[in-house]
Every structure is written in structure tokens, then in C-alpha cells.
Amino acid sequence: MKKQVKIVVYGAEQLCASCVNLPSSQETFEWLHAAISRKYPNQPFDIIHVDIFNPPNEEELSQFAERVIEEDMFYPVVTLEGNIVGEGNPRLKDIYKELEKYGYSQAE
């Protein structure tokens, strides 16, 4: 593995108006954590959940949270190393593809 990546799930407690039948951002966060851990065991990664209406004081995270609101993005929005890899209903296949660019490889 080349680099331990940072995955951020941006969302809110209240579901996005256009995402009513989709999982919440917290549920997406938990689902992604479990799915990535199973697919790439013993390959560490950082994953955090950011409430877009109450972001942490870290400038990068708070600026992107503001962008999600201003641009009316469908949340949850998932970023991997700062690049958007999913919005509204993120696809595991897309996230896995991006992880593999950083040297993650499937369990044997």
C-alpha cells in the first residue's frame, strides 16, 4: 500500500430533500467503514463524518461543508483525499476504484 487515505463523509442529521429514500449520512459513514474494512483488511484508512451544519474547526473540512450547502449538493457527499467520489447515493465500486489508485488491494 502506498498511502493511508482520508475519506470524509459530509452530511447532516436531516436527510437531503432529494434523498428521502436513501440512507442518512451517518448510516452511509458506518456502511462505508464496514465495507472498506472488509474489502481491504489490514490496510488502514481514516474515515470521518462531518455534519455540514456544524463542521469542525478544521479549515478544509468547514470550507467543503459550506460548499456542500452553497452548491446544493446531494448529501451525503463522500470525498477521498479531497476528491468527490460519491454524492447522494455513493457507489462502492467507484470508491473502491479510487482506493486502488492509492495502492489498496483486495484481500486474497
Rank of each mutant, 00 (worst) to 15 (best):
L22N: 06
Y104E: 11
L22Q: 09
E98A: 15
P56C: 11
E27G: 00
L61D: 05
L61C: 06
N54A: 14
V78F: 11
V5Q: 05
V8P: 03
A107F: 09
E58V: 15
V85P: 03
T28R: 08
E60H: 09
E60Q: 13
K101D: 06
E81P: 07
K2S: 06
V50W: 00
Y10L: 04
K93S: 11
F74A: 14
Q43K: 07
N57L: 13
F64W: 09
F53W: 13
E66Y: 03
M1A: 11
K97S: 15
E27I: 03
D72R: 07
H33F: 05
F74C: 13
Q63I: 03
D46K: 11
M73R: 14
A65I: 04
M1R: 07
P41N: 07
G86D: 09
Y10F: 15
E100I: 11
P44I: 02
F64Y: 15
V20E: 05
I48Y: 01
M1Y: 10
P55Y: 09
S18M: 06
E81H: 07
G86P: 11
D94T: 15
P41Y: 08
T28Q: 14
L99T: 06
N21D: 10
I47H: 04
C16G: 02
L22S: 03
S24R: 04
A65W: 02
V9Q: 03
E100L: 10
I47E: 02
P55E: 03
E81T: 06
D72W: 07
E27P: 01
A12I: 00
A107N: 14
N89R: 13
Q4E: 12
A107S: 14
E70G: 03
E60C: 02
S105E: 13
K97L: 14
L99I: 11
Q106S: 14
F45W: 05
D72K: 13
H49S: 08
V8C: 10
K6C: 03
R38E: 15
Y75T: 05
E66A: 11
A12F: 00
Y10S: 04
I84D: 01
Y40Q: 06
N42I: 04
L61F: 15
E13S: 03
W31M: 15
N21M: 11
A107M: 14
E108F: 09
A12G: 04
D94Y: 09
Y10H: 03
E66T: 11
G86L: 05
G11I: 06
A35N: 09
F74Y: 08
A17S: 12
E59C: 01
Q43L: 07
P41W: 09
E59Q: 15
L32P: 00
N21S: 07
A35G: 01
Q14P: 00
V77E: 08
I47F: 03
D46V: 07
A17E: 10
R67M: 07
K39N: 04
E58P: 00
R67Y: 12
G82P: 05
E60P: 00
E59M: 10
A34H: 12
S37Q: 15
K3C: 01
E108Y: 08
L15T: 02
T79L: 12
E59L: 14
G82T: 10
K6D: 12
G86I: 13
G86H: 09
K2Q: 04
P41E: 10
L99G: 04
Q4V: 12
E71T: 12
K101C: 04
S105Y: 15
L22M: 13
V50T: 09
L61V: 06
E70N: 13
Q26W: 04
E81K: 08
A17G: 00
A107R: 15
Y96D: 09
I47P: 02
A107H: 15
G11W: 09
